[in-house]
Structures are given as C-alpha cells and as structure tokens.
Simulated assay, not measured.
Amino acid sequence: MTFLIFTLSAVIVVLASIQLNRFGDVISQKSKLSGAVVGTFLIAGATSLPELTTSLTAVYIDNPDIAVGNMLGSNIFNVLILAFIDLIYRRKRMFNMIEPKQHLPSAFAAMVFTGVVVLSLVLNSSITIFNIGIEMFILVGLYVFTVRYFDNNEEKEMVEDEAAATGKDYSLKAASVGFAVSAVIVFAAGSALSIFGDQLAQQTGMNSSFVGSFLIAASTSLPELITVLVALKLANYDMAVGSILGSNLFNLQLLAITDIFYQKGPILNATSGGNLPIALLFIGMVGLILYMMRRKSYGGLLHYAAPSFLIVVMYFISSYFLF
C-alpha cells in the first residue's frame, strides 16, 4: 500500500509539474519577467515546496540528518538532472544556447551559500540568535542581495510565437491562476511523496544521511526533472537552467526555515558528518556548471558533453561510497 501511494503521488507530481512549467512559460512571455527570472525564482520556489515539507517533518520526528540531508541532497540531484538531460540532448548544446550573464550570479551564489554551510559543519559551533544559527541569517541576507541583483539586471526575453510555444493562448491572469493551482497540487502530492518515501526508506533499514541525501532528495526533485524536460521541449533553455539553479538557492533558504522550527539549537550542529561530503560535492558540481556556461562554444560533441558526464560519474561514485 505504501509503494502504491508513493507511485501515485509521483505520477501526480509529474503531471502537475508539466502544467506548472507551461504556465510559467506564459508568465515569462506576457509579463516583464525574463525566462531566467521566472525559472530562478517563481518556478524554483514552487517546485521546492516538497523539500520544505520533508524537512519540517524530519524536524518533527527529531531527525536533523534527514532534514539537512534532504536539502543538500536535493541540490546535488538537481544538478545531476541538468547534467543528465544535457548528456541525452547533447546535440542541442543547451549550455551554448543560454545567456550566461543571467545565470552566473545564481551559480556563484549557490557556491557561496553552500560554502557558508560547509564552514558551519566544519566548525560544528555557531553563534545563536533566538536559538537560530547565525549562518542562517547570513544565508537569508545573501539571498535577498541576490534577488535584488536579479531585479536590477534582468532582461526581457523576446519570443515570437507565444501560442506555438505553450500550446494555448492563455492570458496572464489565467496563467497566474493556473500556476498557483498547479503549485498547490505539487505541494500536496510532493508532500505525500516525501512522507511515504521516508516510510519506504525506513523499511529498508538504510541510514538517515543516505536516505535524506539520495532517496528522499531524488523523489522530491521530480518536479525539477519535469521542469527541465518541458522547458527543453519549449526551447526555453534559460528557464531550464534557471529553474535548477534557482531551486538550489531556494532549498538553502529552506534550511533557515527548518532551523527556526528546530528548538534544540542550530540544526547544522545537530547533524552527523555525513552531510559535509554532500555539501562539498555540490560545490564541485556547480563549479563544472560554471565552466560549461563560461567556456567557448567550439569543439565536438565529446568535448561539449565531457563536463556533464563527469558530474554524473561524481554523483554515482559518491552515492556508492556514502551508501
């Protein structure tokens, strides 16, 4: 019964995420928001809702390893999605089709944010304010700065045929309502996916760090997977990349919310050492994403696909050793 509900929830998340992405594409076309901004903040926030529910549930059952591991693990799985899709559709050369300056700030920010988490995990001690680690206030402050940077530098994308891209000529109001409804469905189904995924993990007897960082993180990242696939189908490459990078930033902000509800002190101090290699792995993976965005467009398919292949290899080798 648990597996049946888990599977049904996964299907609902997939279907709702498709609509979420399509409505987001309409919003990017008919508003003053670019595809990168819509992907980085609007869609990223909605698709990160399951991660929040999972981590808050983990706090409730007093399992900080799952709470933190879920966020960090979701981030590396998100980057894996981007790399894996780039490998499959390597002939499209996705990273050569985007505007790097729209995504470099969020990629750099993700590395800096995670660096703050790494420092806190290494020191294993923290100044607290209202029982919340000071690193969480730093993360929120950095996020606000990043959002303001995007507000000051976004550029409007020009799309010639809106109806052909979305399949239906929705108005901005209808797209906004559809986006909100789809986000609620993703939240509900994604929450069920997380809860029953946790139950399945407990039945297998796997440790909490691995469960949070890989099994649950993978299941709650299904919306991001569908987001990238649909954006790729719409040829909105900036939204595909922006949704992943934005989701990573948003997940790190959810750590701050999780810390608020964890009443035993800074949540990062309560975790085991298993989350540190996950955070370091993420920094390395994003470093390769930065390289792909900054490199020149020349070279054959093997040269182009090499960084994405390396990201996939890094993920599975890490999964093996952490398991």
Rank of each mutant, 00 (worst) to 15 (best):
S126I: 01
V116C: 12
I88F: 09
E51Y: 04
D86R: 00
T54M: 09
V117Q: 05
F130A: 15
L123C: 10
N96A: 05
M94I: 13
F84R: 03
F130W: 14
L123T: 14
M71K: 05
L123Y: 08
M94H: 02
I127W: 10
P50A: 06
I61A: 03
G69L: 02
G115W: 10
L72I: 09
M97A: 10
A58T: 00
L82V: 12
G45N: 07
E51I: 06
I43V: 14
I132L: 09
F108G: 08
G69H: 01
V122Y: 15
L72N: 06
A110I: 10
L49Q: 08
A46Q: 08
L119N: 15
G133A: 04
F77G: 13
S120M: 10
A107K: 11
T128I: 09
A83V: 12
P50F: 05
I66R: 02
T114R: 14
V118G: 13
M97W: 01
A110D: 11
M97E: 13
N63V: 04
S106V: 15
V116L: 14
A110V: 10
N124T: 03
V79A: 13
T53H: 00
D65S: 04
R90G: 02
I98M: 12
S120L: 05
L80I: 09
N78G: 14
L82R: 09
I98L: 12
L72Y: 05
N96K: 04
F108L: 15
V79N: 13
L119H: 14
F84M: 08
M94G: 03
G115Y: 08
S125F: 01
T57I: 08
F84C: 06
A67L: 02
Q102W: 03
L52S: 03
N75A: 07
T57C: 00
S55F: 06
I134F: 15
S125C: 05
R93S: 03
S55E: 04
G73A: 08
I43R: 12
N96C: 05
V112E: 07
N124I: 03
R91L: 03
S125L: 00
T128Q: 11
G115L: 11
T57S: 04
Q102A: 15
T53A: 11
M94P: 05
L119T: 14
Y60T: 11
